[in-house]
Design a protein around this nucleic acid. Structure first.
Lengths: 337, 337
DNA sequence: AGCATCCATGTGACCGTGCACATCGAGGAG
DNA sequence: CTCCTCGATGTGCACGGTCACATGGATGCT
């Protein structure tokens, strides 16, 4: 069902030239849409291309131009909902601009691994790299790396400095915290993400800002690892404590696990305790009780990243985007006190 | 922060040769681990490579060999948990074998789009393609396409014919249906996946086989679209009916939505009705009640696909794998009658 | 000793493009 | 009428590897 052995030689630009009765360079000009080609000649060449079913050889082109029409995606994530959605959007946006995509997942976030990965992509002569590096460390390493190709970093610090772009996590976290406060909660616990993660920090910052502005004292946050399992165990533990009436989990998975843990400990949600999450994963609306959370447009983020990167590559001025504003999804897991 | 304009010329194989005092061909031999190289010479060359921080140019190599050391991933999915997990595993496995990855998502599943996508990947001279084509149609188009490079298809018909590989969906579906039967249910409804999907068909087959072997009559299945939202609306509708005591949803998302719909209609799970799903997504264990489902090792599947494909590319005999056996996860959403 | 063989290495062509430069005819300015 | 410019096209080489073949020396066999 395959013919890997004797692959017939594909027609080259010279074959097309011969058939069309022109020089190979003229064919090249037609392919690259050079203005100074007589329409009649162009037509002859296009016919020849059609007849031979000619396709330009990307490797040869990459060799000659030292550009590959390929964008690299460097991902330090492990299948979380957000990054995954963004990646899909990046792929589609890049393909729409006739760029191929080369994906590379970081095995770990050591500086060595990052450096190795970047060099690998450069070696593949990608024209630009989109980095999904939610961890502070990765971001810093990249800054210091003086990467020799343009790159854009997604899901990073909200202080967008031209090479990074993200949704306004701080605003989203602040929004949902203020929502809890409006519901009458004053003792709100934050179940945060891992220390090193930029999103974890941003969301915690939003929480802290909201609490401070409302003159409420905060409880020391718990550090989680984004997983539902962690949320579950945390819920069982936390059920013993009585120093809070609401929990803001830094992502939906932990929130869902948390509700499970609370439930197993005999607590009712939201009657005994309110729980909110962040991300609005597809099941969030359907768990029991439906989870109040913050929706983010990860796809839009991915599309923007590609636009920013392409502008850099082409030497255009960077497109200006407004912030990606998260949207509050009030559902039933949080109730007024 | 970038230097797209004046990219310094990278050191070439000839630069290395000059520094090491050998011919460029000797350098090439070292790079390709040719046996007939004096250890001492090899060392000198490797030193030169290190000094210059030389990296082979993949485009040049691809041009010369007409192989790109790149695997294409052709995906017709939209972020479902299973395929996403498999893709990540494929990427990692391929990278581990020193293959780069080029991803291409199908915008739709028309024969034209599929043909275009395959040609695009071939044009990028990928050495092989892993197809994630859960739809029957895509699979058939591919069969007829006489693709000129080796390819492996994942998540397809269980009758593995050497170019496709998948978990034994039929067995998994049969397993969970039999589980329901053992719990005392005899009126079991199946909430199936979309018509065209291979997995939907396999899971329905498993269900039908189990029912037939147990001499139980079946209720005409409902066709869903894999989403939790569909499950929710289906649940609200189905709550009126009383001709079944258990529902087997073809995936977890629909099962979770279904439970939500039933709940809203005032039914208790599993007291009034049992619900089971398929896939074991990460939240399945934490919804209320925890969902009884079937776990599949999508990552293993991805890894195997790469092995099969590489064997084809290298002309080795195809590796023999036992079936990927799904595992039943008995939790609380299904109870004995 | 003579010759075949093999090891270690070098030489030049070639893969399919794009780029810089050359060429040639037509048309406009002086 | 001549010169210059510009449009349309051709020529040769560079890009950075690999491949087929050549070379020269050491070794083994008769």
């Amino acid at each position: 069902m395959s013919s890997s052995s004797e692959r017939a030689r594909m027609p080259s630009i010279r074959d097309v030239a011969r058939l069309a009765g022109v020089s190979h360079q003229t064919v090249s000009r037609v392919l690259n849409e050079h203005p100074s080609i007589r329409p009649e000649t162009k037509e002859r060449v296009l016919d020849a291309i059609r007849v031979l079913d000619y396709r330009p050889n990307v490797a040869a082109r990459a060799l000659a131009t030292s550009r590959s029409n390929t964008l690299g995606i460097l991902s330090a994530t492990t299948g979380e909902f957000g990054p995954t959605s963004s990646i899909a959007a990046i792929e589609d946006a890049a393909r729409a601009e006739r760029y191929a995509i080369s994906t590379l997942n970081l095995p770990d976030t050591t500086p060595e691994a990052i450096g190795h990965a970047v060099r690998q992509l450069v070696r593949e002569s990608v024209d630009g790299i989109v980095v999904l590096a939610p961890q502070v460390r990765v971001f810093n390493v990249l800054r210091g790396l003086a990467v020799s190709v343009p790159f854009v970093s997604l899901q990073t610090a909200s202080g967008s400095d031209g090479i990074s772009h993200s949704a306004d996590q701080v605003a989203g976290a602040r929004m949902i915290t203020e929502y809890l406060i409006r519901l009458g909660h004053s003792d709100i616990l934050h179940l945060a993400g891992p220390q090193d993660w930029i999103e974890a920090e941003s969301r915690m910052r939003g929480y802290l800002d909201a609490m401070r502005d409302a003159d409420l004292s905060t409880i020391p946050p718990i550090r989680g690892d984004w997983t539902a399992d962690f949320g579950y165990f945390a819920g069982q533990e936390l059920a013993r404590r009585r120093d809070f009436t609401a929990v803001f989990a830094a992502n939906d998975l932990m929130a869902i696990g948390l509700m499970h843990g609370f439930r197993d400990a005999g607590m009712r949600i939201p009657a005994d305790i309110s729980v909110v999450g962040f991300d609005d994963v597809p099941v969030a609306a359907h768990v029991a009780p439906p989870l109040t959370t913050v929706h983010q447009d990860f796809s839009e983020l991915g599309r923007r990243a590609v636009q920013i990167l392409l502008a850099q590559i082409r030497g255009d001025s960077a497109p200006v985007f407004g912030p990606v504003v998260p949207v509050l999804c009030g559902r039933e897991s949080a109730a007024s006190r």
